[in-house]
Amino acid sequence: MELAIFLATVVFISLSGVMAPGPLFAATLAEGRKNPLAGFVISAGHAIVEVPIILLLFLFGLSAPPSLKTYVGIAGGVVMLYLAYLELKSGGNDVKPGKALFTGIAMSALNPYFIMWWLTIGLALILKATTFGIVGLALFIVAHELCDFLWLGIISISSNKAAAIWGAKAQKVLTAFSVSILLFFGIYFIYAGLVEFIHTAP
């Protein structure tokens, strides 16, 4: 596969994942109301978790035990519910240094579907990257992370603009929307984790 075609494939597949509404999207929407650059900070937190995974898969490969999805899913669901609680408690006005970075890290490390994506689709892309050696790996990381930074950056800037234009009304709507997404995924992750635990329990 030509390098240019490979990178185009990486961009399209990466965008299909990052543009889907999920925990990172909800967190970026919430943080963006207060800080238009929050999407970039959240992306940095996301990258802190993601890049080492890419390197591990590239160098050694990685096989997760069946129990990993269960425990990560439950932990991730609890964190998402906690973030939803904080969002409701603050009314969307909670601004703390480092919160966006922590959110990016937590919403990635504790998202079982993020991990499973890398163990399946992501691993397939990385195996193709090995064809191009270190250059292929470096370009793969840059292309994938740029998708995250650009999309989440757009989301936080748009959220901030909407809040500035429509004021308190927009803030209430955006808070309700982001909390709803966090609640949905939090409950779903816990439910899926418990179901998996029941099915795998001796």
Rank of each mutant, 00 (worst) to 15 (best):
K34L: 15
A38H: 07
A38K: 10
G39A: 08
G39E: 11
F40E: 01
F40K: 09
I42G: 03
H46E: 03
H46S: 04
A47D: 00
I48N: 01
I48F: 09
V51K: 11
V51G: 06
P52I: 09
P52R: 11
I53E: 00
I54S: 01
L55H: 00
L55G: 03
L57D: 02
F58W: 14
F58L: 14
F58E: 06
P65I: 09
P65Q: 12
T70G: 04
T70N: 03
Y71A: 02
V72W: 08
I74K: 08
A75P: 11
G76N: 09
V79T: 07
V79L: 15
Y82V: 05
Y82P: 00
L83P: 00
A84W: 06
A84I: 05
Y85R: 12
Y85N: 01
E87K: 15
L88G: 03
G91Q: 12
G91N: 11
N93L: 10
N93A: 10
G98Y: 02
K99T: 01
K99P: 01
L101P: 05
T103M: 12
I105M: 13
L110P: 04
P112A: 11
P112K: 13
P112I: 09
W117V: 11
W118E: 07
W118A: 09
L119S: 14
L119D: 03
L119F: 08
G122S: 09
L125V: 04
I126T: 02
I126K: 04
L127G: 10
L127A: 13
K128N: 10
K128L: 10
A129M: 11
A129G: 03
T130M: 07
T130Y: 00
F132H: 12
F132P: 02
G133D: 11
I134T: 14
I134Q: 12
I134G: 04
V135N: 12
V135W: 05
V135E: 15
V135P: 00
V135I: 14
G136R: 14
L137I: 08
L137Y: 09
F140K: 10
A143T: 12
A143Q: 07
